[in-house]
């Protein structure tokens, strides 16, 4: 069931909790083996609290919130994001999305991803073909 796409409407929130091996699986799937994502000791040696999420994995959660709301991957025409606060493992990620405008069958949606009070993706803007 596709969500309502009209200005001001909120799309269904996407909630997902990355388990402690998520960054290892995503490293393999994406080809990004930066050790800050997969090596606890290395991450701490460069001043991080521990291994952090890949920004592009978090962006993929924002993308998934859009495609699930729109009823499939073909609806997503464009997505831009800013990466900010560090995402961590074993803490729930919540993606919220709001329709800003609809014109010529395309909705412009603003979105962000949070973990608790930390915004890990901000100023996300998606273009979605309205189902």
């Amino acid at each position: 069931m596709a969500a309502e796409f009209e200005p001001g409407a909120e799309l269904p929130a996407l909630k997902t909790t990355p388990d402690r091996f998520l960054t290892v699986r995503y490293a393999g799937a994406s080809g990004d083996f930066n050790p800050i994502h997969i090596d606890e000791q290395f991450a701490q040696s460069v001043g991080l609290p521990g291994r952090i999420l890949h920004g592009l994995w978090s962006m993929a959660q924002v993308a998934r919130a859009q495609t699930e709301a729109a009823g499939g991957p073909q609806a997503l025409r464009a997505l831009s994001v800013q990466f900010r606060g560090m995402g961590v493992l074993e803490q729930e990620v919540v993606v919220t999305s709001k329709v800003k405008a609809v014109a010529d069958g395309v909705a412009t949606v603003s979105a962000e991803a949070r973990q608790g009070d930390t915004r890990i993706i901000r100023n996300a803007v998606a273009e979605i073909v309205v189902p």
Partner: peptide, 17 residues
């Protein structure tokens, strides 16, 4: 198989992937 691996790692459940 690479698509299926990536879809699984990013939480996709749509059977198209």
């Amino acid at each position: 198989e690479k698509i299926k691996e990536f879809a699984a790692a990013t939480g996709e459940t749509n059977p198209l992937h």
